[in-house]
Design a protein around this nucleic acid. Structure first.
Lengths: 252, 252
DNA sequence: CGGGACTTTGAGCAAATTCAACCATTGTGG
DNA sequence: CCACAATGGTTGAATTTGCTCAAAGTCCCG
């Protein structure tokens, strides 16, 4: 990777040096999404220790963050934008296993290698932690470790919801669930939930829901025709009939 | 197979009292599946502390272990038999999110309530831990907490594998993956992987793979006809052509 | 043995996919 | 500034995979 010094490295990413002497340039204590993330369980001195090993990374849309099978050298915290996680079958079939937004944690794998790939959907900013150093730090910060466990447990619950979606819901129910779920998460981050921003492509949505782009497109128009949603320019959707879409989402 | 020194409670389960004075009757140190489970990171005195809050539970096949939405009062460790986890849609559609065997941990939810239901597939034995007491114990046993985090991280990886299965694999690939996966887990537990025991019904397999029983049955006969597997009496399968089935499983 | 649950097989159907064409938006070079 | 290629999205028609409904076959277990 690139040398430190906050220039633009060969692969186009910018970051702050890990040098603690200038860590105050990006103090975690001033982080405006901290209350969304795992860091919010830490007090000021603990946060300082975290700040000493973190570097901030900015990536443009479509840049790969990490690749399945690569050594899991870093963990990340998304601080802005949208990241997709995915796995591939040998013949290219793809399953997107999650979309991450500000506050979401990325890279938890106590294995040596990443079990999935991650790619920036929009321009994103990330906090990057060297895995070794973070693991060492965890021994001193049981609160953080507990929080990570809670985080993992929540992700497991979300994964189970995604399983029932993939295995048992119809296309219309899948799209509805997807929209309701994104809206709820946007709300939790304090971002507008209606109209809702859809930064990802139809293909991404299809690969997340186990459908094809054509089916995703047809289902959107169907929901539009039924006046459940309204498609707005700029990748926005209005959830016109919130009750109806929530009903569809839960498989009513 | 019954637990010693205890009565049968109202709901038909047998268990040892939590009374530590007789905990030595079921000492964790003599547990023959310990090396498979989260407990194996603990040394003798730590194990003793765990033994003081554990009770052993035996349930017959088809008995519900815990129910989605109920207060999450206990965590479990499966010590024998097979348990299925599942979620339901309002209209009864079911998704089985996992099968658990000896060594597998159950109930990790830092929420107040279980996010899914669990039911015994075969007769099962479980170690049961009161959640509050286990959580308190975790503060003193960082090794165990780390191990739980590692466990959760592995489960997340497995969940992502299941997502690509549900979203992107064909019926034949699903069945093949299922068999290969079960065989690998049986092997890890030191149980015979070929012929492989299938303790769960066709309906359970269908609800796990996002199929119908009919499709599961047809796919089994198809694999049988192609001489990839052999169906044996007593719910056993022989993986006749291991290479072929592994190829099918990975979507080759 | 006999009965009930589970499994397998069959025939027709339907939801979603595939293949193909068309439309909209955007960015580029003449 | 416009033409136009490129990308992504939408729509249509035909196909297919897996589902539904129905019936027959097996396997336990009493």
């Amino acid at each position: 990777m690139s040398a430190s010094g906050s220039g633009r490295s060969a692969d186009g990413e910018r970051r702050t040096p890990a040098d603690p002497s200038i860590a105050h340039i990006h103090p975690c204590s001033a982080c405006d999404i901290r209350q969304l993330s795992v860091c919010n369980v830490l007090d000021a001195p603990e946060l300082q220790r975290l700040a000493e090993i973190v570097s901030t990374v900015t990536l443009p849309a479509h840049r790969t963050v990490l690749h399945e099978g690569d050594p899991a050298d870093h963990l990340y915290n998304v601080t802005g934008g949208c990241v997709k996680l995915y796995k591939l079958l040998p013949d290219g079939r793809r399953q997107i296993t999650g979309f991450l937004f500000a506050g979401d944690f990325l890279g938890l794998a106590l294995e040596d290698r990443y079990a999935y790939s991650a790619e920036a959907v929009s321009d994103v900013t990330l906090c990057r932690f060297p895995r070794r150093r973070l693991e060492r730090l965890l021994d001193d910060l049981p609160k953080l470790e507990k929080r990570l466990l809670g985080n993992a447990s929540n992700e497991l619950a979300a994964a189970q919801d995604q399983m029932i979606l993939l295995g048992r819901k119809t296309a219309r129910e899948k799209i509805s669930s997807f929209l309701v779920n994104l809206a709820a998460r946007a709300e939790r981050r304090g971002q507008p939930a209606d109209p809702l921003a859809l930064p990802m492509s139809r293909t991404d949505i299809a690969d997340y829901l186990g459908l094809t782009t054509e089916t995703v497109s047809r289902t959107f128009t169907q929901l539009k025709t039924r006046r459940v949603i309204t498609l707005l320019p700029g990748g926005m959707v209005a959830l016109t009939d919130r009750l109806a879409i929530e009903d569809l989402a839960s498989g009513g």
